[in-house]
């Protein structure tokens, strides 16, 4: 029987974690965060929002400002050096060692831990099987494709049976098609491992697909933390709403006259286009056929523009006058957004 894929999952608890650079700029405002045992938390936000800094605080490559504490389960790791934290990290550029083969890369952490050569070989083989790269064990790193490198980096990080797994933009370096596929593979693997995991990404689709919960960050601050669906349906701020998909806003006298509200905020698929005379009067400006859907660019009579995604059999053509109302399935939560 080989060693288990991962140890029992631990929680990660950050208390009052802030990071200020030596030049005085604030990378991270004081922040409390708990990652539950076995869950995958996605840190989502635009570049420079502090998500990578947060990840580096967790693995110890950066030290938080005084007053912060970090716990893995019950153990305080705030002052534990990165080499002793037992974290598995997949770096953005994968950081595979060019002077070592694929197998040597995967086995490096085990070698450091003094694992005997035979046991190491078995574990490496098992890890490479897990990411389906057994055949490439003796390859040099520069002979691998981007997707293969990503999987080697993952195998290397989990080979040491880390207590927590951290992934920094694990799929960003890959092209779009490959990214789609590896996203599915990664989601399956993480579920199978059951390890506590933090993923940093700037891609909302990736965050929602991989994260059990998503933490949206902006300008060094945690904007909202919740399950993907909650974030999407009940965003706590305009920033979150806008970052998780397109958000259209309409306001002014026309809106008030026809709908009786000051502001209307909605996602493009949440409105229905109906015959003129019903709802908010608008004109179709352009129509784009996208396969399963049609995207309509519309304008109100006062010139405000917005977008609608409707079924691809919708008959509306440019210059058509139409009415706009909330789709029947649209959640009530939109009212809340409208007021924010």
């Amino acid at each position: 029987m080989t060693a288990p894929l991962a140890t029992d999952p631990l929680s990660i608890t950050l208390t009052h974690c802030a990071k200020t650079w030596p030049d005085g700029t604030r990378a991270l405002a004081p922040l409390d965060l708990e990652v539950r045992p076995g869950e995958t938390l996605a840190l989502l936000g635009p570049s420079g929002c502090g998500k990578t800094t947060l990840l580096r605080l967790i693995c110890g490559l950066e030290r938080a400002d005084a007053g912060a504490t970090i716990h893995f389960g019950e153990q305080a790791v705030t002052d534990v050096a990165p080499e002793s934290r037992g974290v598995g990290v997949v770096f953005q550029g994968y950081a595979l060692f060019p002077n070592m083969s694929v197998a040597e890369n995967v086995g490096y952490g085990l070698k450091i831990r003094g694992v005997a050569a035979a046991a190491r070989r078995d574990r490496v083989r098992e890890m490479l099987a897990l990411v389906e790269l057994e055949a490439l064990a003796d390859r040099r790193i520069d002979q691998l494709s981007g997707g293969q490198r990503q999987r080697v980096a993952l195998a290397r990080a989990i080979a040491i049976q880390p207590r927590v797994l951290l992934l920094d933009e694990p799929l960003t370096a890959l092209d779009a098609r490959l990214r789609q596929q590896l996203r599915v593979d990664l989601a399956k693997l993480l579920r199978r491992l059951g390890i506590t995991c933090v993923i940093v990404t700037h891609d909302q689709e990736e965050a929602m697909m991989l994260g059990d919960r998503v933490a949206v960050m902006s300008a060094g601050r945690l904007e909202q933390l919740g399950e993907p669906e909650t974030l999407y349906r009940a965003p706590a701020s305009p920033f979150v709403a806008d970052f998780l998909g397109t958000l259209c806003r309409l306001e002014g006298a026309v809106v008030r006259r026809h709908l009786g509200v000051d502001t209307l905020a909605f996602r493009p698929h949440e409105i229905a286009i109906v015959a003129p005379g019903e709802g908010l009067p608008a004109t179709v400006q352009a129509r784009f056929f996208l396969g399963s859907q049609v995207r309509l660019e519309l304008a109100l009579e006062d010139g405000q523009r917005f977008t609608a995604l409707v079924a691809s059999n919708a008959p509306w053509q440019p210059d058509a006058r139409v009415g706009v109302r909330m789709a029947d399935a649209a959640p009530a939560a939109l009212e809340e957004v409208a007021s924010c």
Partner: peptide, 20 residues
């Protein structure tokens, strides 16, 4: 990142120097 990766894998300053 090579050095950081080695560090998170448990390599001490000396091992990072020798191995990486």
């Amino acid at each position: 990142q090579w050095l950081e990766a080695a560090q998170t894998l448990g390599a001490s300053t000396w091992r990072r120097f020798v191995d990486i």
